[in-house]
Amino acid sequence: MAVDATQRAPQAPGSDFAASGRRVFELEQQALQAVGARLDGAFSAACRLILDCRGRVVCIGMGKSGHVARKIAATLASTGTPAFFVHPGEAGHGDLGMITDADVVLALSYSGESDEILTLLPVLKRQGNPLIAMTGRERSTLAREAEVHLDVSVPAEACPLDLAPTSSTTASLAMGDALAVALLDARGFTADDFARSHPAGALGRRLLLHIADVMHVGDDIPRVAAGATFGDVLLEMSRKRLGMTAVVDDDDRLLGLLTDGDVRRTLADEGTDIRTTRVVDIMTRSPVTIGADALAVEAARLMETHKINGLLVTDAERRVVGALNIHDLLRARVV
Rank of each mutant, 00 (worst) to 15 (best):
A2L: 09
A5M: 11
G14R: 12
D16C: 13
A18R: 14
V24K: 11
Q29S: 15
Q29D: 02
G36N: 14
D52M: 10
R54I: 03
V58K: 07
V58F: 03
G66R: 12
K71E: 02
A73R: 12
T75L: 12
T75V: 09
S78W: 12
S78K: 15
P82S: 09
A83K: 11
F84H: 01
L96H: 05
M98N: 09
A107M: 02
P122N: 11
Q127Y: 02
M134A: 02
R137A: 01
A143Q: 01
R144Y: 01
E145T: 05
H149C: 11
P160D: 05
D162A: 15
L163G: 06
T166L: 08
L173I: 01
A178W: 03
A180D: 00
V181K: 01
V181W: 00
A191K: 14
D192W: 13
F194G: 06
S197F: 15
A200G: 15
G201M: 10
R205E: 04
L207S: 00
L208G: 06
A212D: 05
A212C: 14
V214F: 06
H216D: 01
V217Y: 00
P222Y: 10
G227M: 12
G231Q: 14
M237C: 10
K240V: 02
L242E: 10
G243I: 05
D249T: 09
D251F: 13
G256K: 08
L257Q: 03
R265Q: 11
D269G: 10
G271Q: 03
I274G: 06
T277N: 10
R278I: 08
I282D: 07
P287L: 13
P287K: 13
V288H: 11
A292P: 03
A292N: 07
L295Q: 03
N309K: 14
G310Y: 01
A316T: 06
A323T: 12
L329Q: 04
L330S: 12
R331M: 13
A332Q: 08
A332E: 00
